[in-house]
Amino acid sequence: MAIKILAPGLSTTVQDLGRPGYYHLGIPLSGGMDRFALRVANLLVGNDEGAAVLEAVFMGPEIEFTADAVVAVTGADMPAKVDGAVQAAWTSFKIKAGQKLSFDFLQKGARAYIAIAGGIDVPVVLGSRSTYTLGALGGHQGRKLQAGDELALGSAVKSVAAGRSLAESLRRAPGAPAELRVLPGLYWHRITDESGRQFFDDTWKVAPEADRIGYRFRGGRPLGFVPRKQPFGAGSDPSNIVDACYPYGSIQVPGGTEPIVLHRDAVSGGGYFMVGTVISADMDLIGQLQPHTPARFVKVDMKGALTARHDRASLLGRVRAALAS
Protein backbone atom coordinates (compact mmCIF):
# COMPACT_ATOMS: atom_id res chain seq x y z
CA MET A 1 0.00 0.00 0.00
CA ALA A 2 1.35 3.39 -0.92
CA ILE A 3 0.58 6.99 -1.58
CA LYS A 4 1.82 9.08 -4.47
CA ILE A 5 2.68 12.75 -4.09
CA LEU A 6 1.17 14.67 -7.02
CA ALA A 7 2.11 18.10 -5.66
CA PRO A 8 4.25 18.52 -2.56
CA GLY A 9 2.95 21.82 -1.15
CA LEU A 10 5.48 24.30 0.14
CA SER A 11 7.44 22.08 2.47
CA THR A 12 5.99 18.72 3.42
CA THR A 13 8.13 16.30 5.40
CA VAL A 14 7.73 12.94 7.12
CA GLN A 15 7.82 13.42 10.90
CA ASP A 16 7.21 11.37 14.04
CA LEU A 17 8.04 12.17 17.67
CA GLY A 18 11.70 12.57 16.86
CA ARG A 19 15.18 11.24 17.35
CA PRO A 20 16.48 11.82 20.87
CA GLY A 21 20.00 10.88 21.94
CA TYR A 22 22.24 12.44 19.27
CA TYR A 23 22.12 16.13 20.13
CA HIS A 24 25.70 15.93 21.43
CA LEU A 25 26.77 15.25 17.83
CA GLY A 26 24.71 18.08 16.40
CA ILE A 27 21.85 15.83 15.28
CA PRO A 28 18.69 17.41 16.68
CA LEU A 29 15.45 15.84 17.87
CA SER A 30 13.44 16.75 14.75
CA GLY A 31 9.87 15.38 14.69
CA GLY A 32 6.58 17.25 14.53
CA MET A 33 6.82 20.89 15.55
CA ASP A 34 3.31 20.63 17.00
CA ARG A 35 3.62 17.29 18.77
CA PHE A 36 0.14 17.55 20.26
CA ALA A 37 -1.50 17.81 16.83
CA LEU A 38 0.70 14.98 15.55
CA ARG A 39 -0.32 12.70 18.41
CA VAL A 40 -4.01 13.47 17.97
CA ALA A 41 -3.88 12.85 14.20
CA ASN A 42 -2.42 9.41 14.89
CA LEU A 43 -4.93 8.58 17.62
CA LEU A 44 -7.81 9.53 15.32
CA VAL A 45 -6.77 6.93 12.72
CA GLY A 46 -5.90 4.24 15.28
CA ASN A 47 -2.11 4.55 15.02
CA ASP A 48 0.40 4.60 17.84
CA GLU A 49 0.81 8.22 18.91
CA GLY A 50 4.34 8.32 17.56
CA ALA A 51 3.67 6.89 14.08
CA ALA A 52 5.14 8.83 11.16
CA VAL A 53 2.83 11.40 9.55
CA LEU A 54 3.19 14.19 7.01
CA GLU A 55 3.81 17.70 8.31
CA ALA A 56 2.69 20.29 5.73
CA VAL A 57 3.71 23.94 6.19
CA PHE A 58 1.41 26.80 5.05
CA MET A 59 0.17 24.84 2.02
CA GLY A 60 -1.12 21.30 1.71
CA PRO A 61 0.12 18.62 -0.69
CA GLU A 62 -1.92 16.76 -3.26
CA ILE A 63 -1.81 13.02 -2.74
CA GLU A 64 -3.15 10.06 -4.70
CA PHE A 65 -4.05 6.92 -2.76
CA THR A 66 -3.45 3.49 -4.29
CA ALA A 67 -5.53 1.66 -1.69
CA ASP A 68 -8.41 2.42 0.68
CA ALA A 69 -7.26 4.24 3.81
CA VAL A 70 -8.40 6.12 6.89
CA VAL A 71 -6.94 9.61 7.24
CA ALA A 72 -7.12 12.49 9.73
CA VAL A 73 -5.79 16.04 9.48
CA THR A 74 -5.07 18.12 12.59
CA GLY A 75 -3.12 21.25 13.46
CA ALA A 76 -3.42 24.20 11.10
CA ASP A 77 -6.83 25.06 9.73
CA MET A 78 -6.31 24.00 6.13
CA PRO A 79 -9.43 22.11 5.00
CA ALA A 80 -8.76 18.67 3.56
CA LYS A 81 -10.69 17.57 0.46
CA VAL A 82 -11.28 14.11 -1.00
CA ASP A 83 -11.83 14.45 -4.74
CA GLY A 84 -12.88 18.02 -3.99
CA ALA A 85 -15.27 17.26 -1.11
CA VAL A 86 -14.28 19.08 2.08
CA GLN A 87 -13.69 16.91 5.15
CA ALA A 88 -14.04 17.92 8.79
CA ALA A 89 -10.78 18.81 10.57
CA TRP A 90 -9.58 16.85 13.64
CA THR A 91 -11.83 14.02 12.38
CA SER A 92 -11.04 10.72 10.69
CA PHE A 93 -12.35 10.13 7.17
CA LYS A 94 -12.15 7.40 4.57
CA ILE A 95 -10.45 7.69 1.23
CA LYS A 96 -10.73 5.07 -1.51
CA ALA A 97 -8.11 3.71 -3.86
CA GLY A 98 -7.69 6.09 -6.77
CA GLN A 99 -9.05 9.10 -4.89
CA LYS A 100 -7.09 12.30 -4.35
CA LEU A 101 -6.48 14.15 -1.12
CA SER A 102 -5.93 17.88 -1.54
CA PHE A 103 -6.22 21.01 0.59
CA ASP A 104 -7.87 24.39 0.61
CA PHE A 105 -5.90 27.50 1.47
CA LEU A 106 -4.53 27.94 4.94
CA GLN A 107 -6.98 29.78 7.18
CA LYS A 108 -5.32 29.62 10.57
CA GLY A 109 -2.18 28.15 12.10
CA ALA A 110 0.88 27.09 10.13
CA ARG A 111 1.36 23.31 10.09
CA ALA A 112 -1.14 20.57 9.28
CA TYR A 113 -0.53 16.97 10.34
CA ILE A 114 -1.78 14.30 7.96
CA ALA A 115 -1.99 10.88 9.60
CA ILE A 116 -2.83 7.77 7.61
CA ALA A 117 -3.80 4.49 9.28
CA GLY A 118 -0.68 2.32 9.34
CA GLY A 119 1.67 5.31 9.36
CA ILE A 120 4.20 6.42 6.73
CA ASP A 121 6.68 3.58 6.37
CA VAL A 122 10.03 5.17 5.56
CA PRO A 123 13.21 3.56 6.97
CA VAL A 124 13.94 4.12 10.67
CA VAL A 125 17.24 6.04 10.97
CA LEU A 126 18.83 6.37 14.44
CA GLY A 127 15.52 5.33 15.99
CA SER A 128 13.18 7.65 14.10
CA ARG A 129 11.46 8.24 10.76
CA SER A 130 11.63 12.03 11.15
CA THR A 131 13.20 14.14 8.42
CA TYR A 132 16.18 16.33 9.32
CA THR A 133 16.67 18.19 6.06
CA LEU A 134 19.79 20.14 7.07
CA GLY A 135 21.60 16.85 7.67
CA ALA A 136 19.84 15.06 4.77
CA LEU A 137 18.82 12.44 7.34
CA GLY A 138 15.72 10.29 7.81
CA GLY A 139 12.28 10.77 6.30
CA HIS A 140 12.01 10.20 2.56
CA GLN A 141 15.58 10.44 1.23
CA GLY A 142 16.45 13.02 3.89
CA ARG A 143 14.49 15.80 2.18
CA LYS A 144 11.12 17.45 1.81
CA LEU A 145 8.72 15.68 -0.53
CA GLN A 146 8.66 16.27 -4.29
CA ALA A 147 6.06 15.55 -6.95
CA GLY A 148 6.34 11.94 -8.01
CA ASP A 149 7.53 10.59 -4.66
CA GLU A 150 5.87 7.37 -3.58
CA LEU A 151 5.66 6.54 0.11
CA ALA A 152 4.86 3.12 1.54
CA LEU A 153 2.37 2.77 4.38
CA GLY A 154 2.58 0.40 7.31
CA SER A 155 -0.22 -1.98 8.17
CA ALA A 156 -2.90 -0.51 10.40
CA VAL A 157 -2.58 -1.45 14.08
CA LYS A 158 -6.33 -1.57 14.49
CA SER A 159 -9.20 -0.70 12.23
CA VAL A 160 -11.09 2.45 13.13
CA ALA A 161 -14.20 4.00 11.74
CA ALA A 162 -14.46 7.25 9.88
CA GLY A 163 -16.01 10.13 11.76
CA ARG A 164 -13.95 9.83 14.95
CA SER A 165 -13.47 13.39 16.10
CA LEU A 166 -11.72 15.32 18.86
CA ALA A 167 -14.04 17.72 20.69
CA GLU A 168 -13.20 21.36 20.04
CA SER A 169 -12.69 21.99 23.73
CA LEU A 170 -9.74 19.59 23.65
CA ARG A 171 -7.98 21.23 20.70
CA ARG A 172 -5.30 23.81 21.21
CA ALA A 173 -4.25 26.82 19.15
CA PRO A 174 -2.23 29.97 19.83
CA GLY A 175 -4.06 33.08 21.06
CA ALA A 176 -3.76 36.56 19.56
CA PRO A 177 -1.24 37.82 20.34
CA ALA A 178 0.43 34.46 20.87
CA GLU A 179 1.78 34.18 24.41
CA LEU A 180 4.97 32.21 24.81
CA ARG A 181 5.97 31.53 28.39
CA VAL A 182 9.67 31.93 29.07
CA LEU A 183 11.90 30.91 31.96
CA PRO A 184 14.63 33.60 32.07
CA GLY A 185 18.13 32.23 32.55
CA LEU A 186 21.25 31.01 30.69
CA TYR A 187 22.90 34.38 29.90
CA TRP A 188 20.04 36.60 31.15
CA HIS A 189 22.58 38.45 33.32
CA ARG A 190 24.21 39.84 30.17
CA ILE A 191 21.37 42.34 29.55
CA THR A 192 20.45 45.38 31.61
CA ASP A 193 17.44 45.35 33.96
CA GLU A 194 15.75 47.89 31.71
CA SER A 195 16.21 45.64 28.67
CA GLY A 196 14.93 42.68 30.65
CA ARG A 197 11.69 44.53 31.33
CA GLN A 198 11.38 45.67 27.71
CA PHE A 199 11.83 42.13 26.44
CA PHE A 200 8.67 41.04 28.24
CA ASP A 201 6.74 44.31 27.76
CA ASP A 202 7.18 44.62 24.00
CA THR A 203 4.94 43.00 21.43
CA TRP A 204 7.00 41.16 18.82
CA LYS A 205 6.07 39.80 15.42
CA VAL A 206 7.08 36.51 13.83
CA ALA A 207 9.63 37.29 11.10
CA PRO A 208 9.57 35.63 7.67
CA GLU A 209 12.68 33.66 8.76
CA ALA A 210 10.70 31.07 10.68
CA ASP A 211 11.29 27.39 10.06
CA ARG A 212 11.93 24.06 11.76
CA ILE A 213 15.35 25.22 12.98
CA GLY A 214 14.06 28.33 14.68
CA TYR A 215 11.59 31.17 14.75
CA ARG A 216 12.86 34.73 14.49
CA PHE A 217 10.92 37.64 16.03
CA ARG A 218 11.01 41.35 15.17
CA GLY A 219 9.56 44.61 16.35
CA GLY A 220 10.67 44.86 19.98
CA ARG A 221 13.26 47.33 21.19
CA PRO A 222 16.94 46.27 20.96
CA LEU A 223 18.48 44.85 24.14
CA GLY A 224 21.24 46.71 25.97
CA PHE A 225 24.19 44.79 27.41
CA VAL A 226 25.88 44.96 30.76
CA PRO A 227 29.43 46.07 29.87
CA ARG A 228 32.20 43.50 30.22
CA LYS A 229 35.57 42.65 28.76
CA GLN A 230 34.75 39.86 26.30
CA PRO A 231 36.11 36.52 27.57
CA PHE A 232 38.89 34.86 25.58
CA GLY A 233 37.45 32.85 22.68
CA ALA A 234 34.03 34.47 22.72
CA GLY A 235 34.38 36.94 19.89
CA SER A 236 34.11 40.70 19.96
CA ASP A 237 30.36 41.41 19.85
CA PRO A 238 28.74 41.79 23.28
CA SER A 239 26.16 39.19 22.24
CA ASN A 240 28.92 36.61 21.66
CA ILE A 241 29.81 33.85 24.11
CA VAL A 242 32.34 31.02 23.93
CA ASP A 243 30.37 28.65 21.68
CA ALA A 244 28.07 26.58 23.90
CA CYS A 245 25.10 24.21 23.67
CA TYR A 246 21.71 25.63 22.82
CA PRO A 247 18.67 24.19 24.67
CA TYR A 248 15.55 23.49 22.58
CA GLY A 249 13.36 26.56 22.97
CA SER A 250 16.29 28.74 23.96
CA ILE A 251 16.09 32.37 22.86
CA GLN A 252 19.27 33.80 21.37
CA VAL A 253 19.44 37.45 20.40
CA PRO A 254 22.35 38.06 17.97
CA GLY A 255 23.48 41.66 18.29
CA GLY A 256 20.69 42.22 20.81
CA THR A 257 18.12 42.91 18.08
CA GLU A 258 16.03 39.95 16.87
CA PRO A 259 15.27 37.05 19.22
CA ILE A 260 15.42 33.56 17.67
CA VAL A 261 13.67 30.66 19.42
CA LEU A 262 15.27 27.35 18.46
CA HIS A 263 12.85 24.56 17.60
CA ARG A 264 12.87 20.83 16.73
CA ASP A 265 15.65 21.00 14.09
CA ALA A 266 17.73 23.30 16.33
CA VAL A 267 21.37 23.99 15.70
CA SER A 268 22.82 22.31 18.78
CA GLY A 269 25.23 25.05 19.73
CA GLY A 270 26.91 28.26 18.77
CA GLY A 271 28.34 31.55 19.90
CA TYR A 272 25.32 33.72 20.72
CA PHE A 273 24.09 34.46 24.22
CA MET A 274 20.57 33.40 25.22
CA VAL A 275 18.15 35.23 27.51
CA GLY A 276 16.10 32.20 28.51
CA THR A 277 14.04 29.34 27.21
CA VAL A 278 10.44 28.89 26.05
CA ILE A 279 8.93 26.28 28.37
CA SER A 280 8.23 22.80 27.02
CA ALA A 281 4.45 23.29 27.29
CA ASP A 282 4.47 26.14 24.75
CA MET A 283 6.80 24.71 22.10
CA ASP A 284 3.91 23.19 20.10
CA LEU A 285 2.25 26.61 19.80
CA ILE A 286 5.27 28.08 18.03
CA GLY A 287 4.86 25.50 15.27
CA GLN A 288 1.45 27.02 14.51
CA LEU A 289 2.61 30.65 14.19
CA GLN A 290 2.57 32.29 10.76
CA PRO A 291 4.98 35.07 9.83
CA HIS A 292 3.76 38.52 10.96
CA THR A 293 1.76 37.03 13.87
CA PRO A 294 2.03 39.26 16.96
CA ALA A 295 3.59 37.48 19.93
CA ARG A 296 4.54 38.25 23.48
CA PHE A 297 7.03 36.59 25.77
CA VAL A 298 5.59 35.97 29.22
CA LYS A 299 7.89 35.53 32.19
CA VAL A 300 7.38 32.43 34.36
CA ASP A 301 9.38 30.73 37.10
CA MET A 302 10.17 27.01 37.29
CA LYS A 303 7.04 26.34 39.32
CA GLY A 304 4.95 27.98 36.60
CA ALA A 305 6.77 25.99 33.91
CA LEU A 306 6.12 22.70 35.69
CA THR A 307 2.47 23.55 36.32
CA ALA A 308 2.03 24.31 32.61
CA ARG A 309 3.77 21.06 31.77
CA HIS A 310 1.41 19.20 34.09
CA ASP A 311 -1.63 20.90 32.51
CA ARG A 312 -0.44 19.84 29.05
CA ALA A 313 0.02 16.26 30.22
CA SER A 314 -3.47 16.14 31.72
CA LEU A 315 -4.97 17.59 28.52
CA LEU A 316 -3.25 14.82 26.59
CA GLY A 317 -4.62 12.34 29.13
CA ARG A 318 -8.16 13.56 28.46
CA VAL A 319 -7.56 13.32 24.70
CA ARG A 320 -6.34 9.74 25.05
CA ALA A 321 -9.36 8.83 27.16
CA ALA A 322 -11.72 10.46 24.66
CA LEU A 323 -10.18 8.57 21.74
CA ALA A 324 -9.56 5.27 23.55
CA SER A 325 -12.55 3.41 22.17
Binding site: G185, L186, A244, P247, Y248, G276, T277, I279, A305
Partner: peptide
Protein backbone atom coordinates in the same frame (compact mmCIF):
# COMPACT_ATOMS: atom_id res chain seq x y z
CA UNK B 1 24.44 26.54 36.70
CA UNK B 2 21.27 27.70 34.98
CA UNK B 3 18.05 26.03 33.88
CA UNK B 4 17.21 26.08 30.17
CA UNK B 5 13.44 25.89 30.54
CA UNK B 6 12.02 22.86 32.36
CA UNK B 7 14.04 20.26 30.41
CA UNK B 8 17.67 21.45 30.38
CA UNK B 9 20.42 22.41 32.77
CA UNK B 10 23.21 24.51 31.33
CA UNK B 11 26.54 24.43 33.13
CA UNK B 12 29.14 27.03 32.28
CA UNK B 13 32.47 25.76 33.60
CA UNK B 14 34.21 29.00 32.69
CA UNK B 15 33.30 32.18 30.80
CA UNK B 16 36.50 32.01 28.80
CA UNK B 17 37.92 29.20 26.74
CA UNK B 18 40.83 27.12 27.98
CA UNK B 19 41.87 23.49 27.75
Amino acid sequence: YSFGGDEHIFVEVDEEMSL
